[in-house]
Amino acid sequence: MKNFEYVLPGSLEEASKAAADGGAKLKAAGVDLLDEMKNTVATPDKVVNLLSVGGMREIVRTKDGWRVGALVTLAQLADSRLPAAITAAAGEAATPQIRNVATVGGNLCQRPRCWYYRNRAYACLRKGGTVCYALEGENRYHAIFHNDACAIVHPSNVAPALLALGATVVTNRRSIPIEEFFVLPSDHVDRENVLEDGEIVTEVQVAQSRWSSAYREERERDSFDWATVSAAVALRMDGAVVKDARVVLGAVAPVPLRSKEGERVLIGQRLTEKIAQAAGEAAFKGATPLSDNAYKRLVGPANLKRAILSAGL
């Protein structure tokens, strides 16, 4: 790891100012950032430690929902009373040791896990090069939607769940509906979200609702692993009938991907296995798999179907 100047800001303003400096990086727990620095994919001159800013470590119950501080750990989130999709997504992320330190803000802002991106030998599009090596290369874990420019998948488990529950990301400058937080490579290929220099996620707000929700993922290894496909589903039920639905696909696109196609199949229908299956198929119909990842188009609908059924039943 390259040496750096360690900045211990005493306030958000100080942190923001230090982070706005070119060559500076924000650090929360550092699980993702240290990995990037060890691989020398990130070589900051300054590391700005958010942990030294006070606060942002609590989940606060408000009259209409929850405020989750950016430094709340995934373990805290998994043990909380937030909607089921969110606690399940946090509880399935990474390993127990990692969940004890990894933060919600860091989870949302973590960089892609694409092996070309993480390998210093490849000057890929996302690192300022001219090619996405995954498009013609090894792309088993890559995107099957929006994969024409760069085929990363967004690595966060928690993001699809927060999107299904319509959460809001709050920064030191503004509130951003999570639906508008993540960006596609066709808009920005060098970052995954709308955050500007010196902008810091301070909390995530989740509204209380009568929607029931579920998160489900498939992975190669049972003990812990990155999802090959995941789905977060929130349903507003009236008896057995789906009044409204939010369906989000994870690990299949450079952003957590809302599927209006899947939602349309569900809304107004009595929830049955057949309808859940149809929604799963509709959600994956427009997929454009690469050479090695067509399996996601088969596993994805089955996983989504199960997520829908567990949200609604």
């Binding site: 360690y6 550092g30 040791q97 330190v101």
Partner: peptide
């Protein structure tokens, strides 16, 4: 339990 390989000693 935490992973000491991904934690800065300064923290």
């Amino acid at each position: 339990p935490v992973l000491s390989c991904l934690a800065l000693a300064l923290d």
